[in-house]
Write a protein that binds this DNA or RNA. Structure first.
Length: 563
RNA sequence: GCGCCCGUAGCUCAGUUGGAUAGAGCGUCGGGCUUCGAACCCGCAGGUCGCAGGUUCAAUUCCUGCCGGGCGCACCA
């Protein structure tokens, strides 16, 4: 369709009817009202200024130059200022169903990304405790983005950065050791800012059971280190298990500690120093990030000789660049947004445009129960973890809720609502649409009716507005996928799926697909159901089912045949 | 104080990257299963798109300034 439009414009240009010095964006949108046709474009109005002609005249010129107009369009009209409304012939729409059948699970996929390599990093929580709900949202968003970008032709790797070095890990070890000493009846002091969650005590109990004697013999410093390593292994395993429960996978796990032990951090610093991007002041070492738009320079090595977390992040992102990625995506909690300028400075310091790093910010999740906000106190270690939520509502529901809203806005997550297997739950609404169609095949099979191949079916009988509405929606899927992926906005896909499901439910409720069992049609049916119509509708249903499944899959959710 | 994000129906949120009469779910009220799954559908009501300017054929959308809310401004991560 858009190529027809482009053809019309270039045809008009060739004939000298339009100048078209700069090509306008050829937007071809589905209008809001059915009487405005299937597709509408505003190019005539966009061109009015540069052509110095009335938009209406320009629209007329475009119409006159439309190639294959009679084959493609049923109706073409110009409305008031210069809207160009196109009504596509049903016989053309129907081709979408053949595409879907032919491409099946590949329908909607494109090679837009042309194989460009993307590294997307998400979650990356400290292995100092269980994942909280905010991590869950980041995980769902990160995975959905990774899958969608793959679907539109990028070569994507998803990675988890393990913050297994530095102060937080020391605190972890000290916290576990303190609990261990308490259990042993020895005097213990919990460090300031120590971890107070109940899981710390549980870890202390396990280490006491497995190597208590050895621990008692060690001087405190070594004992703490041992506790730290033990707790680290347990907590990393816990995090992996939590992610698995949510149905999130990573292709790569990257250790911060490995950057320190391999000397990569020192090398990254030396590299910066050789180009005068790192300097000494007040006994510390500073990254000259202000040279690249950051508001001030940043410490990478403290007076006490320890590297800051920024030093690790510099080395980490340098490593990502050295691995040859065209684009780096970091998914962060939005409270880290102030960190973006310095990381973009890092990009530039290593010779990349700052746009090579794109940060996707994810806002907080507010949990509700019984209409009340669930208060969390991280200090006291009292909070509902991501795992609690997954265990309570299920992984598909959790993911759908996490993806339902624009990631950069606060999300309200009503646990009571999410738990209901009812009309109020948008997840089931979408999945139910899929299951309903699956059920149709089961019924059809018992009546000896098979779903015919689209190529052998006369789809031109699909002329009902409800049928064409569904088909139009199906045809929009590839664009939604592309916009959702490249705009880093997975919520658009969840929204689309809800709309498609709504159309399906409406259609399903209003029209019959299979003939009634047993007796022939009795009473006064609103429409006659011929075998040909049944066949065409079965093909339509299969298309809807396929697209629902593709959409759910690309968001990381299941498309059940039964509920 | 400076910076980033958010203000759209009673509530939670969409709004296709400047288009036509601003949409959906929940909630309220009223209807619909002897026929393919009622975890569904249909209808009614509900709006100065935070406020005020500006840009143009056209602004919920872009710019500026206010108001309100969130977050950030470490030799913590």
């Amino acid at each position: 369709m858009s190529s027809a439009l482009r053809g019309a414009l270039s045809g008009a240009k060739a004939k000298g009817q339009l100048r078209i010095e700069t090509w306008p964006a050829l937007t071809l949108d589905a209008p809001k009202r059915p009487e405005w046709g299937d597709l509408a474009t505003t190019v005539a109005m966009a061109l009015a200024a540069s052509e110095q002609r009335a938009p209406y005249d320009i629209a007329q010129i475009i119409i006159d130059n439309l190639p294959a107009r009679d084959q493609l369009f049923e109706r073409v009209e110009i409305v008031r200022p210069g809207f160009l409304n196109l009504t596509v012939k049903p016989s053309v729409w129907v081709e979408v169903l053949r595409d879907i059948e032919q491409q099946a699970e590949r329908y909607g996929r494109t090679d837009l990304g042309a194989g460009q390599r993307i590294l997307i990093e998400y979650v990356s929580a400290n292995p100092t405790g269980p994942l909280h709900v905010g991590h869950g949202r980041g995980a769902a968003v990160g995975q959905a983005l990774a899958r969608m970008l793959k679907a539109v032709g990028y070569d994507v790797v998803s990675e988890y950065y393990i913050n297994d070095a530095g102060r937080q890990m020391k605190l972890l070890g000290a916290s576990v050791y303190a609990r261990y000493r308490e259990l042993a009846g020895q005097p213990a002091t919990m460090p300031e800012d120590g971890y107070l969650g109940a899981y710390i005590r549980a870890i202390a109990e396990r280490i006491a059971a497995s190597e208590g004697a050895a621990l008692a013999a060690l001087p405190p410093e070594q004992a703490e280190a041992r506790c730290r390593d033990f707790a680290y292994r347990e907590l990393l395993a816990l995090i992996r298990a939590d992610l698995q429960a949510l149905g999130i996978e990573f292709e790569s796990w990257f250790s911060e500690a490995s950057l320190l032990s391999s000397g990569a951090v020192e090398q990254a610093c030396a590299d910066l120093r050789s180009r005068d991007l790192l300097f000494d002041e007040d006994g510390a070492q500073w990254f000259r990030s202000s040279k690249f738009g950051d508001e001030k320079d940043r410490v990478v090595r403290k007076q006490d000789g320890e590297f800051t977390y920024l030093a690790s992040d510099i080395a980490y992102h340098r490593d990502k660049l050295q691995r040859g990625y065209d684009l780096l995506i970091d998914v962060w909690g939005s409270d880290h947004h102030g960190y973006i300028p310095r990381m973009q400075a890092v990009m530039q310091a290593y010779g990349s445009p700052k746009e090579r790093l794109r940060v996707v910010l994810v806002q907080l999740v507010k949990l509700l129960r019984g209409g009340e906000e669930v208060k969390m106190s991280k200090r006291a270690g009292e909070f509902i973890t991501m795992r609690d939520v997954v265990d309570e509502v299920g992984s598909d529901v959790a993911k759908f809720y996490f993806l339902m809203r624009d990631a950069k806005t606060h999300l309200e997550f009503d646990l009571d609502l999410a738990k209901q297997h009812s009309a109020d739950n948008p997840v089931y609404y979408v999945q139910y649409a899929h299951a309903r169609i699956a059920s149709l095949w089961r019924v059809a099979a018992t009546r000896g009716i098979a779903c015919p191949a689209a190529a052998e079916t006369d789809l031109a009988v699909l002329t009902d507005p409800d049928e064409l509405g569904l088909i139009r929606k199906l045809s929009a899927y590839p664009e939604v996928l592309q916009a959702s992926a490249t705009g880093f906005e997975p919520h658009r896909m969840t929204y689309y799926l809800q709309q498609l499901a709504a159309l399906l439910h409406t259609f399903y409720n209003k029209h019959r697909i299979l003939p009634a069992a047993g007796e022939p049609e009795s009473g006064s049916p609103a429409e006659t159901l011929t075998p040909g119509r049944t066949a065409a509708r079965l093909v339509l249903m299969r298309g809807v089912q396929q697209v629902l499944k593709n959409g759910l899959t690309v968001l990381g959710m299941s498309a059940p045949d039964q509920m």
